[in-house]
Design a binder for these strands. Structure first.
Length: 340
DNA sequence: AAAGTGCACAACCGCCTCCAC
DNA sequence: TGTGGAGGCGGTTGTGCACTT
């Protein structure tokens, strides 16, 4: 025997709601509230499943809902919280007044995931792709590493090409910064193919990825992405996707900043677990310092001359990968929410 | 102008959790 | 303590619109 359906599917209407149905539901709830969703459609004269009514109300009709574009600050909050709690959309939505879990989920799936991927960051783990590859590579024997690079390319090739050829605009710097343009142009020249040489680009990405993976994890640092992205190696030494993009996204993509957290358990080959951040802890042992996890106000770096901007870009790299902070600093009220 | 494609968002599905009995 | 129902949640699908070819 299967599960008992929540309502008789033959007798209920499905699909898009009409304005008349919306009116019926809204006026009924205004008078009687939302006590028993199973009875609501019956009493309101709707041929709908109670569950469908609840969804329609919570995701669309509720008067306190905010419709329209997500603000940049809201996006920052979503990304930040997602790095901590994962796909717990209701938890994330609870921090965004007027937004529903469905809103947040849709926005993540349609926009934010692609934005992070475009920055060279894995939207699931919030780590740079190169770091993930390097982490896996440390567990493999050298012959297998080459295969890993090959396999990784197979996985990411389509997305990379899509991003590089169609989403060029995503990497555009804010107006008025010629230094940022220069940094940006370098990255673009390195990685954005002309329409007729995708194969060459693939080869370049492949080479870069292989180099990133082959980087000896015990040489100088146990984090090859630290080495590539924070130590000021010349471009020809870190000519990989992650190397250049890592430098680029922090310096250039000011409209949507993403500070990669330092996870603390790197080097052990273990995956990051949300449970690392215990309730009540801010995961921050360095009081008084600018921390990687803190959100940056857009205006912070909108001012100043080009040198300042370039300096900020370099400083950004250090802050990104040089901190001792394990996780992003979270507001107390958030860390009080029990995360299991 | 028409067909194809991609995107954003609404809605559904099925599992899980909570709670009353 | 066990059970069943209601609500909550996250993943997935459907649909309409905009843009591209």
């Amino acid at each position: 025997m299967g599960r008992i359906p929540c309502c008789e599917k033959e007798s209920v209407k499905r699909g898009q709601w009409t304005p008349e149905e919306d009116n019926k539901l809204a006026s009924y709830i205004a008078q009687h509230g939302t006590k028993n969703w199973r009875l609501i459609p019956k009493n309101a004269g709707l041929q709908r499943c109670g569950k469908s009514c609840r969804l329609r109300w919570t995701n669309y009709l509720r008067p306190d809902l905010k419709h329209g574009e997500f603000a940049e600050a809201e996006e920052q909050i979503i990304v930040k919280l997602h790095s901590v709690v994962g796909n717990r959309w209701s938890l994330i939505a609870a921090q965004l007044p007027g937004r529903t879990d469905n809103d947040v989920k849709n926005h993540w799936n349609t926009k934010l995931k692609k934005k992070l991927s475009g920055m060279g960051i894995d939207p699931v783990t919030h780590k740079p792709f190169s770091h993930l590859m390097a982490e896996i590579a440390t567990t493999l024997a050298p012959p297998q590493v080459a295969h890993l690079a090959e396999a990784a390319l197979g996985c990411f090739k389509d997305e990379m090409l899509h991003l590089l050829t169609k989403k060029r605009i995503d990497f555009s710097p804010p107006s008025g910064s010629s230094t940022q343009h220069m940094i940006m142009d370098t990255a673009v020249q390195n990685f954005i193919p002309s329409d007729d040489n995708n194969d060459r680009t693939i080869q370049r990405i492949k080479l870069g990825l292989s180099r990133a993976i082959m980087q000896d994890p015990n040489n100088g640092s146990d984090k090859s992405w630290d080495v590539m992205m924070s130590s000021g190696l010349a471009d020809h030494q870190v000519d990989g996707f992650a190397g250049t993009m890592g430098r680029t996204y922090q310096a250039v993509v000011d409209e949507f900043r993403y500070d990669v957290p330092n996870y603390g358990n790197e080097g052990e080959g273990s995956g990051w677990s949300p449970s690392m951040c215990t309730a009540g802890s801010t995961c921050n042992d360095v009081p008084g310092e600018q921390l990687p996890g803190q959100l940056h106000e857009k205006g912070d770096e909108d001012e100043g001359d080009e040198e300042e901007i370039a300096k900020d870009a370099r400083k950004g790299d250090e802050m990104l990968f040089g901190s001792e902070c394990m996780l992003w600093d979270l507001p107390d009220d958030l860390t009080r929410i029990p995360i299991v």
